[in-house]
Amino acid sequence: MRDAVARFVHDGDTVVIEGFTHLICFAAGHEIIRQGRRNLTLARLTPDLIYDQMIAAGCARKLTFSWAGNPGVGSLHAFRRAVEGKGAAPLEIEEYSHFGMVARFSAGAARLPFWPLRNYMGTDLPRVNPRIRTVTCPYTGEQLATVPALNPEVTIVHAQRADAEGNTQIWGLLGVQKEAAFASQRVIVVVEELVDQSVIRSDPNRTVIPGMIVHGVVVEPWGAHPSYVQGYYDRDNDFYLAWEPISRDPDKLARYLDEFIYAVPDRAAYVRKQPGLAARLRAGERFSSGVNYGF
């Protein structure tokens, strides 16, 4: 992870660590914080705790997003302090809805300049975000909303497994990872398990990101905690609840960053620091029935 971040994530980059509740790569975010990256534009549908931590650590100049909360709990307080003008540093924001962000990645993946959608009429979002515009359909004359392509410098995707070439398989919630990866100039995949290529080739429909667009593969068990990995470990909902009082208080937040990010060298040490994780969160077994790929 240290090498991948050093090599592929640079100051000033637009960085996407995607994953909708599922498969959010906290290990990558923590390493970016440790390496002291600055002036990043962080983009994600749901900034979640990981971008709250990166904002608190001073990595971000700008945030592009569509829902900035702590799901089922409340606020992201480092984000709120920054936007409400009470934070240590200002934070520029560029705001969409989920559909808008999905459409931005879809345009980026297809290397189109924009994506049309039937949306935003009657909302105040285009008023505060001049990049949400309209186009007249050349076939029907209908006016449609448009959003610009998002082509990040680097996208980081956590997944269950990949082979050494980066062919990456995901099951469970897929979010917008495929589009984000294809839209990106560089792609890092972080996996719970590195598997032999024969495992990937035995079930090719499960591959979401092909090795041809992947620049680095990192093996990092528990790399998504406190997010989750279907079939590996559950979401640490207690930590999401605990984040509320931590992030509400800048001193507590700074102590958290010190103890769980700056004071640990890597994810393995982070996991060793929390010995109960496996007993508490290890996933139960619900196997699918296989299919016949024969011809």
Partner: peptide, 19 residues
């Protein structure tokens, strides 16, 4: 919007659901 008293999470998928 520019100087919010309270910043809430935003739309998520709500805008398009309502539409």
């Amino acid at each position: 919007y520019e100087r919010p008293a309270v910043r809430l999470p935003g739309s998520g998928g709500a805008a398009e659901i309502a539409i």
